Simulated scan of single mutants.
Amino acid sequence: MENVGAIIKEWWASFNELLQTPLFEFGASKVDLGLIFYLAVSIAILIILSKWLMRFVVGKVLKNTHMEKGMLQSVATLVRFGILVVGFVIIFQTAGIDLSALSIVAGALGVGIGFGLQNITNNFISGLIILFERPIKVGDRIEVGDINGDVMSINARATTIITNDNISVIVPNSEFISGTVINWSH
């Protein structure tokens, strides 16, 4: 029995040494198998937890409010992304990875992505404004620009309108914020 205990201790020591063998350096941090395992497990738990919290917010917290289904999903998605961002920062900080080295790269990347996705971001923010302020709702009869019809769906980037000729027109959400909109159902 003592022999088995010694073998297990020896195996555990060699396994622990393998986990702590540095693979490469990332800034001032040394990355080893143990760190990669910790990050993988922590990120998996964070993703599962954020999905569960999103369902909890929609199903329990906001269930008795008088929000539309689209607005409920928008709030839940914002909660999930907030939890993911904060969770990733906490995970990387507790793992000992210095994120200050990434700040310059993230800033430069953010500027490039910002210019590239300017219209998409504008439409996304406009979609959030539409969902929260509710100048139009699904089922409303509206006129925006040269388009007359009924609002069929309001999504994050664009709104679908069915015209009198039964044609689906996808209108970017920024047109509802920057242009003149006549809501015949309001």
Rank of each mutant, 00 (worst) to 15 (best):
I8C: 05
I8F: 12
K9Y: 15
S14Y: 11
S14G: 09
N16F: 12
E17P: 01
T21Q: 15
T21R: 10
F24K: 04
E25Y: 12
E25Q: 15
S29D: 07
V31Y: 03
V31G: 01
V31E: 07
G34Y: 03
L35Q: 05
Y38L: 12
L39F: 06
A40F: 08
V41K: 08
I45S: 09
I48H: 03
L49R: 00
S50I: 02
W52V: 10
L53M: 15
R55G: 12
V57D: 00
G59H: 05
K60N: 13
V61S: 02
L62R: 05
K63R: 14
N64R: 13
N64H: 10
E68H: 05
L72E: 07
S74Q: 06
V75D: 02
T77I: 08
L78P: 02
L78T: 11
V79S: 10
R80A: 13
G82P: 02
G82W: 06
G82M: 07
I83Y: 00
V85H: 05
V85Q: 07
V86F: 09
V86S: 08
G87W: 01
G87R: 01
V89F: 11
I90F: 14
I91A: 01
F92V: 00
F92C: 05
Q93V: 15
T94M: 13
T94Y: 13
T94S: 11
A95P: 01
I97N: 01
D98F: 11
L99D: 03
S100K: 10
A101W: 15
S103T: 14
S103P: 01
G107S: 14
A108E: 10
G112C: 11
I120L: 15
N123M: 02
I125S: 03
S126I: 02
G127L: 00
I129Y: 03
L131H: 01
F132N: 12
E133V: 12
R134D: 04
P135W: 09
P135F: 04
I136P: 02
G139L: 03
G139T: 05
D140M: 02
I142K: 01
E143I: 07
G145Y: 04
D146H: 08
N148R: 10
V151K: 00
S153P: 05
T160S: 09
I161D: 00
I162T: 08
D165F: 08
V169G: 01
V171D: 03
V171S: 00
I177G: 04
N183H: 07
